[in-house]
Write a protein that binds this DNA or RNA. Sequence first.
DNA 1: CTACATCTGTAACGTACGTTCCGTATGTGT
DNA 2: ACACATACGGAACGTACGTTACAGATGTAG
Lengths: 200, 200
Amino acid sequence: MKTGNGKTGRPISFDKDAALEAAMLLFWERGFEGTCMTSLTQAMGLNPSSIYAAFGDKHALFQLAVKRYMGTRAQYATVALEEPTLEKVVRALFDNTVAFLTTPGHPPTCMTLAGAMGGSVEAAPARDLMTEIRRQNEVAMKERFLQARKSGELSKDVNVDDYTRYLSSILAGLSIQSANGSTKAELKRTAEMALRHLGC
Amino acid sequence: MKTGNGKTGRPISFDKDAALEAAMLLFWERGFEGTCMTSLTQAMGLNPSSIYAAFGDKHALFQLAVKRYMGTRAQYATVALEEPTLEKVVRALFDNTVAFLTTPGHPPTCMTLAGAMGGSVEAAPARDLMTEIRRQNEVAMKERFLQARKSGELSKDVNVDDYTRYLSSILAGLSIQSANGSTKAELKRTAEMALRHLGC
DNA sequence: CTACATCTGTAACGTACGTTCCGTATGTGT
DNA sequence: ACACATACGGAACGTACGTTACAGATGTAG
């Protein structure tokens, strides 16, 4: 359970980051319940004992994989919110999302959607984690929009909660479109139509 | 495998429709892979042999459950497309979707989204079926919009494929919102904001 | 009433799951 | 060099999965 403190004993013989990356990609593709430990051992190139010693059980490994996903691949959303103006923020949200969804080398949809919608009671913790992350993403968007409201970029007539949910919906919808097999060009045109209707 | 022709032998002793309805609700909530046969036997009130004799294996049962879902609960979409004018069609799509998602007695999201995103290779047929249904829904929408284009209700400047994907995205996004735990009032306001931006 | 066809209930099948055990290998501290 | 601490590799664990086998129940046809 507790991996070594690095002071004594035999040191780890594998790249922990690379192993976690492999686990993340597999969870991303198949979701928590669709990914079995046997597949993980193969993808990570490790024996079960090494995985359990380094990362804990399947639930803990999933959490770590999701954390890694949020800290790396999913940063496009955080980055978009740092744009200086509201219009640039919204444009970046759509552009980055389309770029993200169509990046080769990983599944064509959000891990938070493919990872655990539905599932048995055993998978409930994973599903709840995905839901919480989706809600946290909305909170981050809302805070940026509140800032735009204060700076006068977003009209006071607009309900910020509604605006946030609306944008979040379209972005989630793009991810579903991508999962359906839409091409990069199609996603781009869909995003452009959304931007046009948003007045950007 | 093949259930009786009704002429001879012991007749079935249960309500086939009610059993399939129970199976559909369970698949809807937990997805294909998250639903085990043991849970199905309990929810349907049947023994394994009765299920296999009446509906076939798990994959076949899932297909029948999805078919039932499309023919009953998911009819709100088909109905919306039958509205006389484009504006009424679009309004009905959003209103019916919100009403559907917030109807008590079933999970707060689309079966086609919760049923099988991701999953192991074993669940691939179920996932492909869900994807195909989502695409068929878009085809039905597109045909209705093409009709509106011919009647002059939809500007010829609008690319019908893009318009369809855009609306489909927002509607899918609403389903994700609902899965996130949004209330009926919140979904309504989100839908209204979408309609406003669409110029309806 | 008898022969036959089908459904029902239970137990069992083989497999795959997540997880743990344990003998061995490989490092550090003295 | 030696004791110790940890990691590795692989086999094994108990459980749950989807599915099937089979004996008994219950109907229809003649």
